[in-house]
Design a protein around this nucleic acid. Structure first.
Length: 416
RNA sequence: GCGAAUGUAGCUCAGUUGGCAGAGCCCCGGAUUGUGGAUCCGGUGGUCGUGGGUUCGAGUCCCAUCGUUCGCCCCA
């Protein structure tokens, strides 16, 4: 048997109602906030991700599906969505028509150890907003995320955490202070953190090890060492979130894994998925467009993990859209006629499911019931002779005889 | 990439010191020769994840491998 590769999976029809709910609700809410859909390629030049996400990030260092195409170019399956959106923004010369508000949804790929809520091919929905500089945009984006989560009914198990990562002005001096502090507590750090002390001391704040967490709690916080502009921005954000009555918590230890973030970082987490607790996450990346060769443009965005959202959905809540009319044709002659009649009625605008397996009336009715059909149209020998069908209401069992030509007129009223 | 648990019917799971592979649900058929759901009766369905090894004999013990899950790591 040939199976899927590790960490990827089929999304079977039984799961699709939940996925459709996610996609439809997202499209509706994102577009109501002024966002338009963008579809970018699923693979790009490796260099795009290396530069945008950060060459030293874990994602680029060890999690990308990278391969050489026949021309020798190094390409990679996209590990996240923002890099491509930024590339498209610059490449399509959209920098003079701000704001540019974009949403996307689709598969992403990371070579990680699979776990519950973590896959090698997974799906994200996200938004990116180019051009808005102030904290109002940050707050409104979070409001949109929370509105979405509320609409799909999972908000109660979630918390919104925010932090400020500062900017190039204030992060360097802070980094020095943090490094100096951490060096005094070197003995308390885990082995991994000792190694990354010089390279990326900020990430130590995010370590879950006992010793490191204790050290992190006493460490100087970025949010207490922001420059004037960054401090003002963060203050504006918290004020606006409060005005919007959105519950949030400041997590001074939150650090994003992608290198391009500055100032606002936010994360929506759940306790329902074990270690994979992030359901949505995002932040501001004011420097990325310029870094990627575009005109300096402030930007902010977020992404949500669809598998994780689907796991949070109440499966019983989603509808499966059962058939309205189910045609049961018994016998070869009725089967022949049934195909024609079904097409004729569909021409008249009716949704008709023709039992695809045939067999006894009993068997077909059983399948109609299992499919959740509301009405069954029975075409047996007697009906065939009379050019009629027996229409059976599957809820109360009431039956009536209908001429073939009367079906469309009679059943159209059932459509709503 | 590291550590641990786990894998038996489509699904959820039993399977004793190594001795004839089971149950419930699902599915199919019958009770009802043209009627689904409730009930009763009967039936189909298994390379016991895979490959080696030990043994007279392996679902059971050993090794390897693959998948899944949990923790680390990382993140959506």
């Amino acid at each position: 048997m040939i199976t899927t590769v590790r960490g990827v999976r089929d999304i079977l029809p039984a799961e699709m109602p939940g996925w459709r709910l996610l996609e439809q609700t997202a499209r509706q809410i994102f577009s109501s906030y002024g966002y338009q859909e963008l579809r970018t390629p699923i693979f790009e030049k490796t260099e795009l991700f290396a530069r945008a996400v950060g060459a030293t990030s874990d994602i680029v260092e060890k999690e990308m599906y990278t391969f050489a195409d026949r021309g020798g170019d190094s390409l990679s399956l996209r590990p996240e969505g923002t890099a491509s959106v930024v590339r498209a923004f610059i490449e399509n010369n959209l920098q003079r028509t701000l704001p540019w508000a974009i949403y996307y949804m689709g598969p992403m790929f990371r070579y990680e150890r699979p776990q519950k809520g973590r896959f090698r091919q997974f799906h994200q929905m996200g938004c990116e907003l180019f051009g808005a500089e102030g904290p109002l945009a940050d707050a409104e984006m979070m409001a949109m995320v929370l509105r979405f989560l509320r609409r799909i009914g999972v908000e109660s198990s979630l918390t919104l955490e925010i932090n400020s990562l500062g900017c190039s002005q204030c992060r360097e001096p802070y980094r020095g202070q943090l490094l100096a502090f951490l060096q005094t507590r070197f003995e308390s750090l885990c082995e991994h953190c000792r190694q990354r002390l010089q390279r990326n001391p900020l990430r130590i704040l995010d370590c879950k090890g006992e010793g490191c967490r204790a050290v992190a709690r006493q460490a100087p916080f970025m949010k207490d060492h922001l420059c004037g502009a960054c401090g003002e921005h963060f203050q504006g954000l918290t004020t606006t979130l409060t005005d919007l009555q959105l519950p949030f918590a400041i997590n001074p230890l939150m650090v994003r894994g992608l290198d391009y973030y500055n100032r606002t970082a936010f994360e929506v987490t759940t306790t329902a998925l074990g270690t994979q607790n992030a359901v949505a996450a995002g932040g501001r990346y004011d420097g990325l467009v310029a870094e990627m060769g575009g005109v300096q443009t402030p930007a902010i965005g977020f992404a949500m993990g669809m598998e994780r959202l689907a796991l949070l959905l109440d499966a019983a809540r989603v509808d499966a859209s059962p058939p309205l009319l189910y045609l049961v044709a018994v016998g070869a002659a009725a089967g022949q006629r049934g195909v024609l009649l079904a097409e004729q009625w569909r021409d008249g605008g009716l949704p008709v499911v023709l039992d695809p397996l045939g067999g006894s009336m009993k068997a077909q009715l059983k399948r109609a019931d299992r499919a959740g059909a509301r009405f069954v149209l029975i075409l047996g020998e007697r009906e065939l002779a009379e050019q009629a069908v027996l229409m059976k209401n599957m809820v109360d069992g009431v039956q009536q005889v209908l001429g073939w030509d009367a079906v469309v007129a009679q059943c159209s009223g059932l459509l709503t």
